[in-house]
């Protein structure tokens, strides 16, 4: 947290606190150190959400074992409020895509994502979920779940260590804490113009149809032509 930073700044400085009633984050933190809780609805809301991110109990491949390890005694994901692995997507906030997404599995993953209520987040855990990883050249391997879903956090590794998953979770928490309730850059679940369901690809004769969702993913161009 930002305790150490705020300790060095004087609490009553800054013009903002004198005119309206909008103390800065540093000032709030300093007040909190003295036992006075000043907060905004946005902060309270994000604080609550970020500390109770419930992941979907959903494992795909090798990375899932490390995800389980992260929830076990040594790594103890409960320290971050995420030990409640929900078997049902209806109760989950976070989809950890932990492993290789095959083309046969991809429609089910997207269906699970569609069944999760907003606000929801997606972590791509491991090389496979990011890009296909070591199995990239396989005919049945989806080359990254971000072809169909919006991914919030990418955790590289094969498999990422449980510590890496915890770090990814903390990054996600920081991201949640920074979300705005109002304004043009408010997140997906607070906007009326975006849906939370993504199209599910169909099984085709040779490949998934379509092979990617153009709204989330465009093929990058090759940086090296030589």
């Amino acid at each position: 947290m930002s305790m150490s930073e705020s300790a060095s700044t004087p609490a009553t400085s800054g013009p903002a606190s004198q005119e309206g009633f909008s103390p800065t984050q540093q000032e709030r933190d300093e007040l909190r150190r003295h036992g006075i809780l000043l907060t905004s609805l946005e902060e309270l809301y994000n604080w609550g959400r970020s500390n109770s991110v419930w992941p979907l109990n959903f494992g795909l491949a090798c990375c899932a074992i490390e995800m389980i390890a992260a929830s076990m005694a040594r790594f103890d994901i409960a320290r971050f409020g995420s030990e409640v692995f929900r078997p049902s997507p209806r109760q989950a906030d976070l989809l950890i895509v932990s492993g290789t997404v095959t083309k046969k599995m991809a429609p089910q993953v997207i269906r699970l994502w569609n069944q999760m209520p907003e606000p929801k987040y997606c972590i791509a855990m491991g090389a496979c979920a990011i890009s296909g990883g070591p199995f990239k050249q396989g005919y049945n391997v989806l080359k990254g779940i971000d072809r169909y879903l919006p991914v919030d956090i990418y955790i590289p590794g094969c498999p990422p260590r449980p510590e890496a998953l915890l770090h990814g979770l903390m990054q996600l928490q920081a991201q949640i804490r920074g979300q705005k309730l109002t304004g043009p850059d408010r997140p997906r679940h607070l906007r009326a113009d975006t849906g939370c369901a993504y199209p599910v690809p169909e099984f085709g004769a040779h490949d998934l149809e379509p092979p990617a969702n153009p709204e989330v993913w465009q093929a990058p161009s090759l940086p090296r032509s030589g």
């Binding site: 005919y139 990254g144 990058p220």
Partner: peptide
């Protein structure tokens, strides 16, 4: 058993051509 029912090819044959869905590396 491994591929979906609608799949038409036999991927372990030596002349199988996989779908060209390569991504930037």
């Amino acid at each position: 058993i491994l591929m979906w029912d609608e799949f038409k090819d036999y991927p372990m044959r030596k002349d199988y051509v996989e779908p060209d869905d390569y991504e930037w590396e």
